[in-house]
Measured scan of single mutants.
Amino acid sequence: YQDQEQRILKFLEELGEGKATTAHDLSGKLGTPKKEINRVLYSLAKKGKLQKEAGTPPLWKIAVS
């Protein structure tokens, strides 16, 4: 689980600052079920590491501290 968090954070960091992506996109790029990706995304957002942008589907990006 920790491993997934690292992979997602790394992927988003590599996208570049301010760039956002969807759970669907992450799921495809990382070869992980979207349900699992979503769980990790919401967990990271709760920890303040990610920012969720409203929309359908929601967009995710690295939180700027």
Score class of each variant (00 low, 15 high):
Ile62Gln: 04
Gln51Arg: 11
Tyr42Glu: 13
Glu53His: 06
Trp60Leu: 00
Ser65Val: 15
Thr56Phe: 10
Gln4Thr: 13
Leu50Ser: 02
Leu15Lys: 06
Leu44Ala: 02
Ala23Cys: 07
Leu9Cys: 15
Glu13Trp: 06
Thr21Asp: 02
Gly18Arg: 05
Thr56Arg: 15
Glu36Ile: 15
Lys46Phe: 04
Leu15Cys: 10
Lys47Trp: 02
Leu44Gln: 01
Gly16Ala: 05
Lys47Cys: 07
Lys47Val: 10
Lys61Thr: 10
Pro57Tyr: 03
Gly55Asn: 06
Ile62Thr: 07
Glu17Cys: 10
Lys19Trp: 05
Gly28Cys: 15
Thr21Phe: 14
Leu9Tyr: 07
Ser65Ile: 03
Lys47Ile: 07
Asp3Leu: 13
Gln6Leu: 12
Glu13Met: 08
Lys19Leu: 06
Glu5Gln: 07
Gly16Gln: 06
Leu26Trp: 00
Gly31Phe: 08
Pro57Leu: 04
Val40His: 11
Glu13Leu: 09
Val64Met: 06
Lys29Ile: 09
Tyr1Trp: 06
Glu17Asp: 11
Val64Lys: 08
Arg39Pro: 05
Leu26Ala: 02
Asn38Asp: 11
Lys49Trp: 10
Tyr42Phe: 08
Lys10Leu: 07
Glu13Asp: 09
Ile8Tyr: 01
Ala54Met: 11
Arg39Gly: 07
Gly18Gln: 07
Asp3Pro: 08
Lys34Arg: 14
Lys35Tyr: 07
Lys47Glu: 10
Thr22Ser: 10
Glu53Pro: 03
Lys35Ala: 09
Leu26Met: 12
Ile62Gly: 03
Lys46Leu: 09
Val64Ile: 08
Gln4Asn: 10
Gly55Thr: 10
Arg7Gln: 08
Thr56Ile: 08
Leu41Ser: 00
Gln6Phe: 06
Tyr1Val: 11
Asp25Gly: 06
Ile37Phe: 01
Leu12Tyr: 04
Leu15His: 07
His24Ile: 07
Lys19Ile: 08
Glu5Trp: 02
Leu50Gly: 01
Glu13Ser: 12
Asn38Val: 03
Pro58Ser: 07
Ser65Gly: 11
Asn38Phe: 02
Ala20Thr: 14
Leu12Phe: 12
Glu13Gly: 13
Arg39Tyr: 09
Val64Glu: 15
Ser43Leu: 12
Lys29Val: 14
Asp25His: 10
Ser65Arg: 08
Lys46Ser: 09
Gly16Thr: 04
Leu50Phe: 02
Lys10Phe: 04
Ala63Cys: 11
Leu44Tyr: 01
Val64Phe: 08
Gly48Phe: 02
Lys47Phe: 03
Val64Leu: 08
Phe11Trp: 07
Glu5Thr: 05
Ser43Ala: 13
Tyr42Gln: 12
Val64Thr: 10
Pro57Thr: 04
